[in-house]
Design a protein around this nucleic acid. Structure first.
Length: 560
RNA sequence: CGGGGCGUGGCGCAGCUUGGUAGCGCGCUUGCUUUGGGAGCAAGAGGCCGGCGGUUCGAAUCCGCCCGCCCCGACCA
């Protein structure tokens, strides 16, 4: 295509509202524009990238025998009521009524509909297995859309669902998805990890996420050289105990000394020898969650034990513990207590539940009763639970996830089949998502440089940026037209930059847009019958004879 | 939802403290020149200063309410 026929309004300056690199660059490169918080318009170049990513996804999904379908975004509330998610999910789901007053939802995911379909159409074990997928819009009323297209309220997702006779068969479908996903990300040219993840609101037992490392990511994963990889929401590490003092409960006066840092320095005791006591309000009443002073509570872990919860406010602390915040502790506190496993067998300092006092020499589950559970957040350099090596933490963008759902949706929606013995069984399901926009953003995040985007070959809007320096020069224009025609004939997607703009702007735009190869045709080309070729990613430059340039460029592209 | 910041030509910003009717850079239009790294000169177009209300002779500027956007947190198939 010709640049003069493509709408790509490039910007010299970063948009004021953008923070993430991918956000700035995608706006500057004229790929997207924001309509409102979390709502984006994709311009032609943005659409081309998305189409390429989706094409790769289709190929790889089809390769594992998945079949594409398309489901409505607007859905009746009934099916969501049947699975319980009408109640479970809060403000994040868009809800509306149709003209007849019926409750409707705008789908944030499609388990309900696809299971409804399966429940109506699958009758026999002979109908299984099935993998159905769609590439479809999802809507979520996100509390906080952010980082450009990374977290939006409306977005495209590839979602697939597997239907199997049992858990062994599900395992097979799950593995096939892992293979397909790995190939998809590889072909899209992004680095990624597969990590253990928290099934969360999807329900089900096992889940993994595909994570692309990037500073713009909202998630964090713990990684080990042995292959252990987990979202910090559930990552575990082996506790390392400091040397403990002698046990024996002694109250000490600690006037106006409240925080871990203050207590630590006031008593000259390392933070790892303090108990951080956090009063939590859960639906079954208050809970005292305890972690070591040098550690932090991982809310998602506590959530699995006590469900929805929030920290108590100062007033609730005074009422329940009878003390000002800062002096709360486990001793004589009549609430459910959950201590992190690293507190087991140690001797600690904790609040005394008396203003201005702490207690020393406390032994958990001896001086006070408590449950033990892993509720702390993993820190970098702690030991891997599998091999003892030091863990590292990394910021990541979630670009895909896979869940073993089991019968969470098939049971309430009655998706059953008759087995070989004529006995009715419940279909066992899996659910698998990929966010194409996040792949695009991750690619920009991981590969861009100070000049602009550096697209991976397979998802670049165009493969070649053919920069015609002086379109008004007939000889140059003719040379460019010829090469353009040859490249297009060879199947090399080329943007002929025939804009009548200054060379500096043209080159700067080429760098900003980030197509893999830039080919320059100028007066030198006309003079000596050559073109200059620049590889965006490496900066390598070549000079090709005009006559053979199309073939040479094609070869170069294939080598990237 | 809690905390913070910001809304002024298309984009990026200044002006606001100390009220007097809006300015800079980029972009855009026209002409001439220029032409291998974000060109030069000249002449132009373009803004009810987010909205509503209040104070005042007079409000971009002061006060109140509302809306929108961004960031941190909470939340997040």
């Amino acid at each position: 295509m010709r640049a003069t026929q493509i709408f790509f309004p490039t910007l010299k300056e970063d948009p004021a509202e953008a923070e993430a690199v991918s956000h700035k660059l995608m706006v500057r490169a004229g790929m997207v524009r924001q309509l409102a918080a979390g709502l984006y318009i994709y311009l032609p170049l943005g659409v081309r990238v998305m189409d390429k990513i989706c094409a790769i996804i289709r190929e790889e999904m089809d390769a594992i025998g998945a079949q594409e379908i398309s489901m409505p975004v607007l859905q009746p509330a009934e099916i969501w009521q049947q699975t319980g998610r009408w109640q479970e999910i809060g403000d994040e789901m868009f809800r509306l009524k149709d003209r007849g007053g019926r409750d409707m939802v705008l789908a944030m995911t499609h388990e309900e509909v696809i299971t409804w379909l399966a429940s109506h159409e699958i009758r026999s074990y002979r109908d299984l297995p099935q993998i159905w997928y769609q590439i479809q819009t999802k809507l979520r009323d996100e509390a906080r859309p952010k980082s450009g297209i990374l977290r939006t309220r409306e977005f495209i997702m590839k979602d697939s669902y597997s239907f199997d006779t049992g858990i062994d068969a599900l395992e097979h479908s799950y593995q096939r998805h892992i293979e397909a996903y790995s190939r998809i990300y590889e072909r899209c040219g992004i680095r990624f990890y597969m990590v253990e993840s928290d099934p969360g609101m999807m329900g089900g037992a096992t889940a993994h996420e595909f994570m692309a490392p990037s500073a713009a990511g909202e998630d964090e994963v713990a990684l080990c050289s042995c292959g252990y990889a987990a979202n910090v929401e559930l990552a575990i590490s082996m506790p390392e105990n400091p040397p403990y003092p002698e046990p024996g409960v002694v109250e000490v006066e600690t006037p106006d000394v409240r925080t871990i840092e203050e207590v630590s320095s006031f008593l000259s005791v390392a933070p790892s020898l303090l108990i951080k006591s956090l009063l939590i309000m859960a639906k079954d009443g208050p809970v005292l969650a305890m972690v070591r002073g040098d550690q932090e509570l991982q809310e998602s872990k506590l959530n699995r034990i006590i469900g929805e919860h929030r920290p108590a406010n100062a007033e609730e602390i005074r009422e329940i513990a009878g003390t000002e915040p800062g002096f709360i502790g486990p001793l004589d506190l009549k609430v459910r207590k959950i201590a992190d496993k690293s507190l087991e067998g140690g001797v600690f300092v904790a609040g005394a539940n008396r203003n201005g006092f702490h207690v020393q020499g406390l032994v958990p589950d001896k001086d006070f009763e408590t449950e033990f559970a892993d509720i702390r957040r993993v820190k970098a350099d702690e030991k891997c639970p599998n091999c003892g090596t030091r863990l590292s933490l990394e910021q990541v963008i979630e670009v895909g996830n896979i869940f073993k759902l089991g019968t969470k949706y098939s049971k309430p929606l009655g998706a059953t089949y008759l087995d070989e013995n004529g006995k009715e069984q419940t279909v066992v399901m899996g659910s698998y998502g990929i966010g194409p926009a996040r792949i695009a953003a991750a690619a920009v995040e991981q590969l861009s440089d100070g000049q602009g985007i550096v697209w991976p070959v397979n998802i670049a809007p165009f493969s070649v940026h053919l920069a015609l320096l002086q379109p008004a020069d007939e000889l140059q224009a003719a040379a460019a037209e010829k090469l353009y025609t040859e490249l297009e004939a060879a199947g090399v997607e080329t943007m002929l930059d025939d804009r009548a703009i200054s060379v500096g702007v043209k080159f700067a735009d080429a760098e900003l847009l980030g197509f893999p190869i830039r080919v320059t045709i100028g007066k030198r080309s006309v003079a000596d019958g050559s073109v200059e070729v620049l590889v965006r990613s490496s900066g390598d430059e070549f000079k090709y004879a005009m006559d053979s340039a199309a073939a040479d460029i094609q070869n170069l592209l294939e080598s990237l």
